Amino acid sequence: MGLDKRELMAQLAERLQHSDRLAVRAQIEAREAARSLATESEKKEDGRAAIEYGSLATGQAARARRVQEEISLLTAFREADLPRFNRRTPVALGAIVDVRTEDDTGYDERTFFLLPVGAGTELTGPGGDGFLSVITPASPVGRALMGRRAGESVDVTLAGEVHEWTVLDVA
């Protein structure tokens, strides 16, 4: 697992920045729509629409603030000394973890990158080779994997269904 963690975090930062730009743009558009509806007509219907657009703008502003906080946390984590992991090291923030699960259809292997933010984001390996899912310690998968070592098995509940995963590697 020779993946460049800093490059993967840069990829996540780029995705977060894109999400921030979208939220800011949506906020501006919603605020403008609320203003134009409120001034063009005094109809009751337009007044309700203006309130809804105003609420939408407020929600988008909150989304942008959350994303900006996530970018700050990721930047601080990237700039710190990243911990080094090996097969005997327990899973912690900064670990890339390979797991395998078995079900009725066979085996499924997945790779996770445990970071303080970005849960659910899918990153691509070098040259587009392979995919990694970002998890956080607050996510069900992150909670289950924290502190585990290669060779250990964990039960993970997803969508109300329990899955047994085996940790293959920690890097």
Rank of each mutant, 00 (worst) to 15 (best):
residue 1 M to Q: 05
residue 2 G to H: 03
residue 2 G to S: 08
residue 4 D to T: 01
residue 4 D to H: 01
residue 6 R to Q: 05
residue 6 R to P: 04
residue 7 E to N: 06
residue 7 E to W: 09
residue 7 E to M: 11
residue 8 L to N: 00
residue 9 M to I: 04
residue 11 Q to F: 06
residue 14 E to D: 15
residue 14 E to R: 10
residue 16 L to D: 09
residue 18 H to W: 12
residue 19 S to A: 15
residue 20 D to K: 15
residue 21 R to L: 07
residue 21 R to M: 00
residue 23 A to V: 02
residue 23 A to Q: 08
residue 24 V to Y: 02
residue 26 A to V: 00
residue 26 A to I: 02
residue 27 Q to S: 15
residue 27 Q to K: 12
residue 28 I to E: 13
residue 29 E to G: 02
residue 30 A to G: 01
residue 31 R to P: 00
residue 32 E to F: 11
residue 33 A to H: 09
residue 33 A to Y: 06
residue 33 A to F: 14
residue 34 A to L: 01
residue 36 S to E: 14
residue 39 T to P: 01
residue 40 E to V: 08
residue 40 E to I: 06
residue 41 S to T: 15
residue 42 E to D: 10
residue 43 K to Y: 10
residue 46 D to I: 02
residue 47 G to N: 11
residue 47 G to V: 07
residue 48 R to E: 14
residue 49 A to S: 10
residue 49 A to E: 11
residue 52 E to R: 14
residue 52 E to K: 08
residue 53 Y to Q: 11
residue 55 S to I: 12
residue 56 L to V: 09
residue 56 L to W: 06
residue 59 G to F: 07
residue 59 G to P: 07
residue 61 A to E: 15
residue 67 V to N: 00
residue 67 V to L: 07
residue 71 I to Q: 13
residue 74 L to N: 02
residue 75 T to S: 11
residue 78 R to V: 04
residue 78 R to S: 11
residue 78 R to H: 04
residue 79 E to S: 13
residue 80 A to T: 06
residue 80 A to L: 03
residue 81 D to T: 14
residue 81 D to R: 12
residue 83 P to G: 14
residue 85 F to I: 04
residue 86 N to Y: 10
residue 86 N to V: 11
residue 87 R to N: 13
residue 87 R to S: 13
residue 90 P to E: 05
residue 94 G to D: 08
residue 94 G to Y: 01
residue 94 G to R: 05
residue 95 A to E: 04
residue 96 I to T: 09
residue 96 I to M: 07
residue 97 V to Y: 08
residue 99 V to C: 08
residue 100 R to T: 14
residue 102 E to C: 08
residue 102 E to D: 08
residue 102 E to A: 09
residue 105 T to P: 02
residue 106 G to Y: 03
residue 107 Y to K: 10
residue 108 D to Q: 14
residue 110 R to M: 15
residue 111 T to V: 15
residue 112 F to A: 04
residue 113 F to K: 01
residue 113 F to P: 01
residue 118 G to A: 04
residue 118 G to I: 04
residue 119 A to V: 07
residue 120 G to S: 07
residue 122 E to N: 11
residue 124 T to H: 11
residue 126 P to I: 03
residue 126 P to Q: 09
residue 127 G to T: 07
residue 130 G to I: 05
residue 132 L to T: 06
residue 133 S to I: 10
residue 133 S to R: 15
residue 135 I to E: 11
residue 135 I to L: 00
residue 138 A to F: 01
residue 138 A to L: 11
residue 138 A to W: 00
residue 140 P to T: 05
residue 140 P to R: 01
residue 140 P to D: 05
residue 141 V to D: 00
residue 143 R to G: 00
residue 143 R to V: 07
residue 145 L to G: 01
residue 148 R to G: 10
residue 149 R to C: 01
residue 150 A to R: 08
residue 151 G to T: 10
residue 151 G to D: 09
residue 151 G to F: 04
residue 153 S to M: 09
residue 154 V to K: 05
residue 155 D to L: 11
residue 156 V to R: 13
residue 157 T to P: 12
residue 158 L to S: 10
residue 159 A to R: 12
residue 160 G to T: 13
residue 160 G to F: 09
residue 160 G to A: 07
residue 162 V to S: 08
residue 163 H to K: 05
residue 163 H to Y: 15
residue 164 E to C: 07
residue 165 W to A: 04
residue 165 W to I: 02
residue 165 W to E: 03
residue 166 T to Q: 13
residue 166 T to G: 00
residue 167 V to F: 10
residue 167 V to W: 11
residue 168 L to M: 10
residue 168 L to A: 02
residue 171 A to Y: 06
